[in-house]
Every structure is written in structure tokens, then in C-alpha cells.
């Protein structure tokens, strides 16, 4: 064998050198591309943040570019005086918490029920559930329906429609089907009914997948903006934080319109001049909860997306 390769050694090493050079260039370009893309993804967050903590005068004169200057946290404190921000924050937090809990419990229970082959009309009802993923009546009929059900300008309008989430139910169902059936059977022999089996056997075993859908559900609730825009137009007290931010962003009126008139102090006046930083600070407040849950999120989403791929 060695004899055979010997004459070719020169050409091989030349080719080898070429491959090494090609690999090197490829690696450099590859690292370069991903570094740049990662910076592009990260920079807006950073830029927004340094603008909110820098001196407001420097921000408005455009002096803050890559590094914060004149660090202070006055903008965050002055948010306390922004009209309606508190109620929006409360609405966003409560819809996220209540909506997510109910959605997770419902998905877990329904996911368990649809694995039960003896259910009356199981196939039909399962299809009844699945079809809703691919077909909807459209925005206007949906709105008219919500208004008919009395869910417009009503906090429950955020919660009740999102309880049933077919996609999450399928994720749970797939997960439950991977749990050994013997566990359920043993509990049934001990005399446990369906609900007891669900509560004592299935639910505890499903925790990983429930954590996954809980985090996705919470992010969805927190980020949701159009439902506030469409359903709650008659009751500004029920606007979500995202909606409030959208209003601030698109509003061309003076910042003082946003402030409760009573509390304008001298310190505030400087920040009043700078509407931009107020907008950015509201955005940061909207962003921070996402950044806090993100580490938990990243732990679960790969699992979630893979389970989603084997749906059906």
C-alpha cells in the first residue's frame, strides 16, 4: 500500500495544503459572519439600554454612540410619573400569569383526555380540535364574535380565548404517549379514577413539557399586542404594556401629555425635554421580563421544537 501511495505523495501534499488553506479561509469567513450577525442581534438591545442610562442632554445631542455617558437611573424613576403605565404593567403581568396557568392546566388535561381511546367520539373530537389550527374565520368575524360574547373591553378577553391551544395540546399528548402505560394501569388497578390518575400520575410526569409550553405561552401573552389594540379600544385601562409602548412610539404629541400634571418637578423637566429617552425606557421595561426568562427559555425550546416536529 505504501508503495502505491509513494509516487503520489507530492500531489497529495499539494492538494492537502490547498484543502488546509481553503478550510482556513472558510473558518475565518464563518467566524466573521457569525460574529457580525451576533453583534447585529445584540447591538439594538445594548444601544437602547445605554440610551436610557446616559445623561439625557447627551442623548438628545447625539453624543451617546457606543458607550454610556453620564450614567444615571433617573429615567426609570421618572417612569413612575408616566400616565397609565402602571395599570398597563399590571394588566400585562396579570394576563401573563393567569392566562399561562389556565392554558397550561387545560393543555395538560386535554392532552391527557385525547390519549384515552375509549372516549366517546374521540376521533371526531380530536379532529374538531386539530382543524382549528389550520382554519379560522378571519379577523372581523372573530372580533364580532368576541364582541357578541361580551369579551371586548373586558379583561377576560385576554384570558378565555387563549385557554385552548391546539398546538400545545398536541405537544402534551405526544409527550404523554411516550410515558409507559403500565404506570397508569397500576394506578387504575388501585382504584384511581381518570381524574385521580391525571392528578397523581400524569401531571407530575409531564412537568418538563408543561414547563416548555408555559414559557412559550407566557412569552406569547407578554408580547401580545394586537388583541389589546382590537378588543380593548374602548377601555384604555386595559391596554397591555406593548400597546402602551406602541401608543407612545407613534404619538407625535408632546411628552407632557403623558405625564400626570401634578408631579412635574425640576428634575423631571429635563427628562420632559427628552421624549426619546422616555420611549426607550418604557421599551426597556417591556423588554426586561423577556430577558429574565430567556435563560429558562433556551433550556426548553429545543425540546419543544423537536416535539413539535413529530406532531400528529
Amino acid at each position: 500500500m505504501n508503495d502505491n501511495t509513494l509516487p503520489k505523495r507530492d500531489s497529495i501534499s499539494a492538494q492537502h495544503r490547498k484543502t488546509v488553506a481553503g478550510n482556513l479561509i472558510f473558518n475565518i469567513l464563518n467566524y466573521l459572519f457569525f460574529t457580525l450577525f451576533a453583534i447585529a442581534c445584540f447591538f439594538p438591545f445594548y444601544y437602547l439600554f445605554i440610551n436610557t442610562i446616559s445623561d439625557n442632554d447627551l442623548v438628545s445631542s447625539g453624543a451617546v454612540k457606543l458607550f454610556p455617558r453620564g450614567i444615571h437611573f433617573g429615567n426609570y424613576i421618572s417612569l413612575l410619573n408616566v400616565n397609565d403605565l402602571g395599570s398597563s404593567f399590571l394588566v400585562s403581568v396579570s394576563r401573563t400569569v393567569i392566562g399561562t396557568i389556565l392554558m397550561v392546566l387545560a393543555s395538560a388535561f386535554v392532552g391527557y383526555l385525547v390519549t384515552k381511546k375509549e372516549m366517546w367520539g374521540r376521533k371526531f373530537w380530536y379532529r374538531f380540535l386539530i382543524i382549528t389550527m389550520y382554519f379560522n374565520a378571519g379577523l372581523i368575524p372573530w372580533y364580532l364574535n368576541m364582541s357578541m360574547l361580551g369579551l371586548t373591553n373586558n379583561f377576560m378577553g385576554y384570558i378565555i380565548p387563549s385557554i385552548m391551544s391546539p398546538y400545545n395540546i398536541i405537544l402534551v399528548k405526544t409527550y404523554i404517549e411516550s410515558i409507559p402505560r403500565e404506570l397508569e394501569e397500576a394506578a387504575a388497578i388501585d382504584g384511581a379514577g381518570y381524574f385521580a390518575i391525571f392528578r397523581k400520575v400524569i401531571f407530575p410526569l409531564c412537568k418538563p413539557i408543561l414547563a416548555t409550553i408555559a414559557i412559550f405561552g407566557a412569552v406569547g401573552h407578554w408580547n401580545s399586542f394586537t388583541d389589546s389594540l382590537i378588543l380593548m379600544s374602548g377601555n384604555p385601562k386595559l391596554f397591555t404594556l406593548q400597546h402602551r409602548l406602541y401608543i407612545y412610539l407613534t404619538s407625535s404629541s408632546n411628552i407632557s401629555a403623558f405625564m400626570s400634571s401634578g408631579n412635574v418637578t425640576n428634575e423631571m423637566v429635563t427628562s420632559l425635554l427628552n421624549m426619546k429617552t422616555i420611549k426607550f425606557t418604557v421599551a426597556m421595561v417591556t423588554l426586561i421580563p423577556i430577558l429574565i426568562v430567556y435563560p429558562f427559555l433556551s433550556k426548553y425550546f429545543e425540546k419543544g421544537i423537536m416535539l413539535g416536529a413529530v406532531k400528529g
Binding site: 375509549e118 374521540r122 374565520a137 372581523i140 364580532l144 364574535n145 360574547l149
Partner: peptide, 30 residues
């Protein structure tokens, strides 16, 4: 019978599905 027991447990969720995913079709009459 177990099959009906399971169905009744599912029923409230079927109602929710109906209200929010099928009932809007009624709005097509507009």
C-alpha cells in the same frame, strides 16, 4: 360508562373551542 365520563370531562373544552374557533364562522353572514 367510562366513555361518557371522559367525554363529559372534555365537554367544557369542546365548548371553549366551539365558542372561539367555530362560532366566528357565524360572523360570515355579515
Amino acid at each position: 360508562a367510562p366513555k361518557f365520563k371522559l367525554f363529559l370531562m372534555f365537554l367544557p373544552f369542546i365548548v371553549l373551542l366551539f365558542l372561539f374557533s367555530y362560532l366566528p364562522l357565524w360572523g360570515w353572514r355579515y
